[in-house]
Design a protein around this nucleic acid. Structure first.
Lengths: 187, 187
DNA sequence: CAGGTAAAAGCTAAGAGTTTGCTTTAGCTC
DNA sequence: GAGCTAAAGCAAACTCTTAGCTTTTACCTG
């Protein structure tokens, strides 16, 4: 077996780097396995054997790029932290390239867990925000509540209705968590 | 130009039928354009010229299969109508084949509108339920509210966290629309 | 630290899918 | 029913994918 740091790891890193470089140079839709393999200095059969097909490889790379690289900012209150996070999330994810990454991540083997990893990233970020609020002594909702009421609607709109999305929508969703005024439905 | 009912329409119908038949026979993952073209009695280049690639074709067919074929059932109250609809929606969409259709629909040209069409189907169904409730004299939430609070969370879980989904979750989401007890967040 | 071992990569050729220019057909319009 | 145009058929060139076999690499034992 080849351990981390060995040849396997170098090949994987090289192929991932080749995907990132080439998708910037020629565009995501023009990528082919032979092209990526050549840039990475490996043979196409290596890529096919390790990833199966182009989709699976793109899915892998997409998940890496969707991993947050910063801790959510501290704006003093739970509400402002969530609002800022939701606005940034929407901003990053609703761009054409952001949507492409999400779609690629969803495209991989459903049992491979790439999609689940994306969701986990968001949940971790939310958890950081909620924990910080709890330390301040604020009442906090469950992570699941924020996922259902903010993340899920944002992601749904990004995937299914990409038009007419703006930061105001993200703010309204966060407000909905704090506002118990009702939905207009009688019980 | 060839109008509806002409050769174009026949080819489209034949190719769609071929996709449905073959995906039942050999499985969605084994489909190829030449295989579909042969079953439909057309040449592969016809398929490539009309749809561009296999993904686009599968996306088209998936949207058709995601179109609801019945009106939401009437159970006497808004709450029971929504609950029944959400449970059925979850049941149909969370199956392996349901998830595959959703993924295929999302995969097509983002500007082609296939994803938006799926969302519109759900919105139409919700609208029927809400209109019926309004006629009964019940207070009703906006369609958007139901999309955000029920459809989006269901779809998010189906796509990103397919494990651990059950009818109880769907019921809780519907309850959340009627229950203004709060989320645990202080304002 | 030399030799053995197993996993992973390289190589190559056969097979399958995709693209494209040109020709033919179908259906509309006058 | 003759002309016209969009779409389909055809066929060849091209690219991608797959698979069997060989070679390399890194780890591990003696």
């Amino acid at each position: 077996m080849v351990r981390p740091g060995g040849r396997s790891a170098r090949v994987q890193a090289g192929v991932h780097a080749a995907v990132r470089e080439l998708s910037a140079e020629v565009g995501r839709d023009a990528l082919t396995v032979p092209m990526i393999a050549q840039r990475a200095g490996v043979t196409p059969s290596t890529v096919y054997r390790r990833w199966g097909d182009l989709q699976e490889l793109l899915s892998d790379v997409a998940v890496e790029r969707l991993r947050p690289d910063t801790t959510p900012g501290d704006h003093g209150t739970l509400r402002s932290d969530l609002t800022a996070w939701a606005e940034q999330f929407l901003d990053e994810m609703s761009s054409p390239s952001g949507r492409a990454y999400i779609r690629d991540a969803l495209l991989g083997d459903p049992d491979g867990g790439n999609a689940g990893r994306c969701s986990a990233y968001a949940a971790e970020q939310i958890d950081v925000i909620l924990s910080r609020a709890a330390e301040r002594g604020e009442e906090t909702p469950a992570v699941e509540t924020v996922m259902d009421r903010v993340v899920a609607p944002l992601m749904y709109r990004i995937l299914f209705r990409p038009d007419g999305l703006d930061a105001e929508y993200a703010r309204q969703l966060v407000t909905g968590i704090f506002d118990n005024a009702g939905t207009g439905a009688a019980d």
